[in-house]
């Protein structure tokens, strides 16, 4: 009998399996990174830890399903347009709707909480999560709702690994958004947001409209959540958005903690690390009987705990300076 560890070594040497694992880990990680980035932007600007992020992701994906397939807007008015164009426009509409929902939630429920304890504000978002999730579930209804994306089940075959078109799209979009967010922080509004994050009162004294900054950050956060939700609901990961989609975002928590609550770079790196760790554990450790079922799923949390033991503010988080 070969010891398990030897089998593991042999399997790791199997390059096509390794390539497939890395690829599928990165593609999962890209979704976590998108979700984590949304979290961090909201946290950075408004100091709100948003537990409703998953609900926003599901809602955003459902908006896409609504515009692209259920009510077919704008597709119904442009019957001759190519599929990618009508779908693209539907996504744009859905993202605008998601941004509006984000701003509305901030204005209604979080603006009154400015200056309250961080913990109390975080719990408000737990309440928001329950409300938004249940209303979204009622809209989604009983079926899985396909998003109607133009990529279908097509893939590129590179021999040692197959790459679905959706996964390419997901990577391109993730990179564009990461760069976009980075550039945004260099823009005038972005600098204002950084100032607000640093000290809300001082920023206000400098003439920055802090309320507007809050609204913008929630809009961006909601859009990033929606994009994450879209890719979490497309082939090959899923065939559409359903009532379980909202729970997907919980895995982004280890990612943001790993990177540090207020670091964009950390969120992106954390997302990829967690995605890779989860898939690799699922693929390579499943054979160890004593680990049982679903060990891969808790690996992100274990990684998170270990990192926090060494660095209590994550890899890139700002250490809080405490005074008496």
């Amino acid at each position: 009998m070969t010891p398990d560890i030897l089998i593991l070594a042999q399997e790791a040497a199997d390059s096509s399996k390794l390539a497939a694992t890395i690829w599928s880990g990165l593609s999962l990680g890209a979704i976590y990174a998108l979700l984590a980035m949304g979290f961090v932007i909201i946290f950075k600007a408004t100091h709100v830890l948003n537990f409703a992020h998953g609900a926003l992701a599901a809602l955003g994906a459902f908006f896409v399903a609504s515009f692209a397939t259920i009510i077919d807007v704008p597709g119904r008015w442009m019957p001759n347009a190519p599929a990618w164009l009508t779908w693209g426009l539907a996504v744009v509409l859905a993202l605008i709707a998601a941004a509006l929902v984000g701003m509305l939630l901030e204005r209604l429920f979080l603006r009154p909480m400015v200056g309250e304890e961080l913990f109390a504000v975080a719990i408000v978002t737990l309440g928001i999560d329950i409300v938004v999730r249940n209303i979204t579930n009622d809209w989604i209804g009983t079926d899985i709702r396909p998003l109607g994306d133009p990529w279908g089940t097509n893939f590129f075959d590179l021999g040692f690994v197959r790459i679905a078109h959706t996964e390419i799209a997901q990577f391109v979009v993730s990179i564009v958004l990461v760069v976009g967010v980075a550039l945004f922080f260099r823009s005038r509004t972005g600098i204002a947001m950084r100032a607000t994050a640093f000290d809300q009162e001082a920023a206000r004294a400098q003439g920055i409209n802090v309320g507007r900054i809050f609204a913008i950050s929630w809009a961006i956060g909601a859009v990033l959540a929606a994009v994450g939700g879209i890719f979490a609901s497309t082939f090959p990961r899923r065939t559409g958005v359903d009532q379980a989609t909202a729970f997907f975002a919980f895995k982004a928590f280890p990612a943001i903690i790993l990177g540090g609550l207020d670091s964009i770079v950390g969120a992106v790196i954390g997302g990829f690390v967690i995605g890779l760790a989860e898939v690799a554990a699922g693929t390579y450790l499943e054979q160890f009987e004593f680990l049982g079922t679903g060990f891969g799923g808790v690996v992100p949390y274990i990684v998170m705990l270990i990192v926090l033991l060494v660095r209590p503010y994550g890899l890139f988080g700002t250490e809080e300076i405490r005074r008496v």
Partner: peptide, 29 residues
């Protein structure tokens, strides 16, 4: 989805509640 994305093909079946009609909806990939 992940199995067929890897080019796998077989006869598939499962207990009744595994299937959802949305799998064969016009927009389903």
């Amino acid at each position: 989805g992940q199995a067929i994305a890897k080019g796998f093909q077989a006869l598939w079946g499962g207990a009744g509640p595994t299937f959802n009609p949305a799998f064969v909806a016009p927009d389903s990939p």
